[in-house]
Design a protein around this nucleic acid. Structure first.
Lengths: 112, 112
DNA sequence: GTAAATGCATTGACAGTCTATGTATATACC
DNA sequence: GGTATATACATAGACTGTCAATGCATTTAC
């Protein structure tokens, strides 16, 4: 995983995951790990600041769930603003990757 | 242009451009602008530090060319190490974008 | 003659991820 | 019973890299 590259996409990835279903921190790391075929190994130092940031921005809501006598999980789900932000970020990602491939001269049919 | 996204790819884009032909700073910005269909508007504050950084790392070589009685252009070209770095960055970019699309659930045939 | 484009470069602000650390429970294995 | 690993949240300081702003100067178009 390239952390420089991650910078611009982390929020989009997290939003995408919690849009399918509400999820808690550790679960999000596992879900992203799995969907990316072990490419993205999210670190706590990146994930939690991002979650708190997006909650402050109104993209996410959170609630606690008891998961055993002494274990709590903090679930996050996307708000309507979060959904809108996700769509915007997806469109931006598409423009960006198209632009990069344009500079690289990559033919479209090489992108499988 | 999203500057967060740019972060991880700027060096690759510059290397790609000067690999085709040696180029000077302003020319690189125009070439990237054109190849990306006006998506990437490289700023001096990003480009020049990157050029100097890559020259220090041995990825680029530079030489001055007179372009008029009182105008000089500083051309950059990729070294063999720069070429190797470019190939590595391209492979990393490919893995990265594949991973992102995997998380987004984007089907391969949607990537044109 | 004057505005815009060309050309190189640096500085300080800012954003975002990383490593390292802290605290604690749950599980698997011997 | 003990120990290592996985689970679970969170923060602090280091580090990297882009940005806006600025500076200086030449060339071109009107």
């Amino acid at each position: 995983m390239d952390s420089q590259l991650l910078a611009g996409t982390l929020e989009m990835l997290v939003l995408q995951v919690v849009t399918s279903n509400p999820a808690y921190g550790y679960q999000i790391t596992q879900e992203v790990l799995q969907r990316s075929k072990c490419y993205f190994e999210l670190k706590e130092g990146s994930l939690y600041p991002a979650l708190h940031r997006m909650e402050r921005e109104g993209f996410l809501e959170s609630y606690w769930v008891e998961a055993g006598p002494k274990r709590r999980r903090k679930y996050y789900r996307a708000t309507p603003q979060g959904l809108a932000a996700l769509e915007k970020k997806q469109a931006e990602w598409h423009r960006f990757s198209t632009a990069v491939n344009g500079v690289l001269g990559t033919p479209a049919d090489a992108l499988a």
